[in-house]
Design a protein around this nucleic acid. Structure first.
Lengths: 121, 121
DNA sequence: CTGAATCCGAAAGGATACTG
DNA sequence: CAGTATCCTTTCGGATTCAG
């Protein structure tokens, strides 16, 4: 009974890969992680560097990353308020597999896009 | 004028990484790719191995993968009909970065889930 | 400056029944 | 067997406005 039947299949919905691909696959997460790879950033700074993201969505995504322990949020009691976001050690460790995926993408996505366009006929 | 201003930023929406993460991040794509990593599979066979996916959704996902040149669809004029899906060379080349991401996930997602649960308080 | 609150449309995903 | 056709619910992302 210590063995859980539902875990026999690596394709189960709780599959670790599924969790991480779902997280990275969303609209802004990867841009945020990459922006924070170099340095700590403030909310508006982040907002300006990653593109036209609505504040609500940016907040949601940052909270999710924070909940997952990938991003740290540090607020300072200044006026005007100052909040800094940075990658945690866990978040930084994610940069390596991301780099592998990005390398593949740089090399092969043009092929993918070409194929996608051919499919429109 | 041969330089496109919008491409100056690696974080642009047409960023190759964005394209590939969006593709892999959807609900069933990764399961399909992993199922086809070992061998060619037929529609129902695929359906049975990846979980409770609606036929409509499986078809949509397979068509998208086919359009992107990652999966090949071969149909045979048999009765009853027989259709086989397999990874293309391009699709197989994607297995390597996926493996890197999966290795990270196997090692660190428990941490992520623990952190996520702590955040519920 | 850093969000929170509200409202909205589009899209993704799914249940079900049916067909060549 | 390998899908298509409908219909439906939920989720996601975004626009806008307001507040501490």
């Amino acid at each position: 009974m210590t063995e859980i039947a539902a875990d026999r299949n690596v394709l189960a919905l709780t599959c670790p890969s599924r969790v991480i691909f779902a997280r990275i696959g969303d609209r802004w997460t990867m841009f945020i992680v990459l922006a924070l790879a170099d340095r700590t950033m403030r909310f508006t700074e982040l907002k300006n560097s990653i593109g036209p993201v609505a504040p609500k969505v940016l907040t949601e995504t940052l909270r999710a990353l924070e909940d997952d322990g990938l991003v740290a949020r540090d607020s300072f009691p200044d006026s005007p308020p100052r909040v800094e976001y940075s990658l945690t050690d866990l978040g930084r460790s994610l940069l390596e597999p991301i780099a592998a995926m990005r390398a593949w993408a740089e090399r092969h996505v043009p092929e993918v896009l070409a194929s996608r366009e051919r499919a429109l006929d």
